[in-house]
Amino acid sequence: MRCVALGRKNWLFAGSKAGGDRAAAIYTVIETAKLNGLEPQAYIADVIAKIAGDWPAARWDELLPWNWRPTVHNVAEAA
């Protein structure tokens, strides 16, 4: 509960209503990722990379936290 209470206090200083709305959206994504057992930074980075890499709009449901699977990179490709 402490994270939510700190977030509430921080929202007082979002700068504008639009800033507060954005902060609420980001907190929602982060907490939803946590509830689904994901590491939020890895999840968000992978989803942004996939969307920027021409991910088809018809498959956006696969990027939701409860459907998302991390991309497995082959070690031989990295070397």
Rank of each mutant, 00 (worst) to 15 (best):
28 T>F: 10
34 K>N: 07
40 P>L: 11
50 K>C: 05
29 V>K: 02
23 A>P: 02
51 I>K: 08
71 T>C: 04
67 N>H: 14
58 A>G: 12
69 R>E: 12
22 R>V: 12
62 E>F: 03
5 A>Y: 06
45 A>N: 11
76 A>K: 13
23 A>K: 00
6 L>E: 09
7 G>K: 00
1 M>L: 05
32 T>A: 10
28 T>G: 15
16 S>Y: 03
75 V>H: 07
64 L>G: 09
70 P>W: 02
78 A>Q: 05
17 K>M: 05
28 T>P: 01
76 A>L: 13
57 A>Q: 13
25 A>M: 07
18 A>L: 03
22 R>G: 09
72 V>Q: 08
66 W>V: 13
74 N>L: 11
13 F>R: 15
54 D>V: 09
71 T>Q: 04
39 E>P: 00
38 L>R: 00
9 K>L: 15
79 A>H: 11
14 A>S: 15
77 E>Y: 03
27 Y>I: 14
48 I>R: 07
15 G>I: 01
36 N>V: 06
8 R>A: 11
58 A>E: 12
10 N>V: 08
16 S>Q: 01
6 L>A: 13
8 R>G: 14
26 I>K: 05
68 W>G: 00
40 P>E: 02
72 V>E: 08
54 D>F: 11
15 G>Y: 00
56 P>V: 02
21 D>N: 12
10 N>E: 08
74 N>T: 10
46 D>F: 00
17 K>S: 06
74 N>S: 11
6 L>D: 12
44 I>M: 13
27 Y>V: 15
76 A>M: 14
61 D>W: 09
8 R>T: 11
75 V>L: 09
15 G>W: 02
40 P>M: 07
23 A>Q: 02
69 R>L: 09
45 A>C: 13
40 P>H: 01
66 W>C: 11
14 A>D: 04
6 L>Q: 08
34 K>T: 07
65 P>V: 03
14 A>H: 00
23 A>C: 09
71 T>E: 03
6 L>P: 02
68 W>Y: 14
6 L>W: 06
42 A>Y: 05
2 R>P: 07
47 V>T: 05
28 T>N: 13
34 K>V: 11
42 A>D: 07
51 I>S: 08
55 W>E: 01
50 K>S: 04
40 P>V: 07
79 A>K: 13
61 D>Y: 08
26 I>V: 15
79 A>Y: 14
5 A>W: 04
2 R>S: 07
63 L>E: 00
